[in-house]
Amino acid sequence: MARAVTNQRKALNTVIAWSIGFLIFFPILWTILTSFKTEADAIANPPIFLGFDWTLENYAEVMDRSNYARFLSNSILIAGGSTILGIIIAIPAAWSMAFVPSRRTKDILLWMLSTKMLPAVGVLYPIYLLCIQLGVLDNRFALVVILMLINLPIIVWMLYTYFREIPGEILEASRMDGASLKEEILYVLTPMAVPGIASTLLLNFILAWNEAFWTLNLTSVDAAPLTAFIASYSSPEGLFFAKLSAASTMAIAPILILGWFSQKQLVRGLTFGAVK
């Protein structure tokens, strides 16, 4: 019998949940608020929460100084391209691991994940030299491939976990009905795993959007995404907190909007198979 939840308890849970949510969101809120302050107000002591003279001067200066549209388009192309390419490669890989596992499947999965443990700077020079040799420094396609390779272990792991929740008998039945391997993956498996694939897509898009080591080191002008845009406003000498906050707000706004619209899908995918 389900336990009755009192209104008081519900209200308490709501308050606690909102408090935790606010606490987590506070740094982003503070960044957004700082972006509307003058540099003097940005460093005021004690800090001013809302009672400051609101200004759009920082946004005007950032727009004047930087080609925001170019940084944004690069971020969209690089994050979107690497995520789609990763999914195309990972679906067949995760299918084989989930439905036709070998004795070494678990080892391969662990090995794939172990590549994430290598500090990126350890392979900076080899990758940089490779890019020079291939003539793809400051090239969007090169970054699409590199970010796809970086995130591939996570994509495979996530899809593998979702695919494992799908009964193999359904795929067997499709085979008995004469479905080819391609049809089995495309028309039977993929539609059933849409929530999982969608959340994998979104999570990897966010990871690729925020990637700031390779995108800073392998780009200069043509392929520089929003991470380079933010980095150009960070300074150890000078008072640029308000302008840095404006640049940060502009960089995170697209991903915040995307996350807001797709939160239902994201939560559904992330909790897929969590409760049976």
């Binding site: 900076l124 940089y128 020079i132």
Partner: peptide, 24 residues
């Protein structure tokens, strides 16, 4: 074309480029 970076990032970036003759 300007590539503006924070001091430490710039130092790492230009050092990598000049030691590998990256030509960026």
């Amino acid at each position: 074309e300007w590539v503006t970076l924070e001091e430490n990032v710039l130092r790492q970036r230009v050092t990598t480029d000049i030691t590998t003759n990256g030509g960026q």
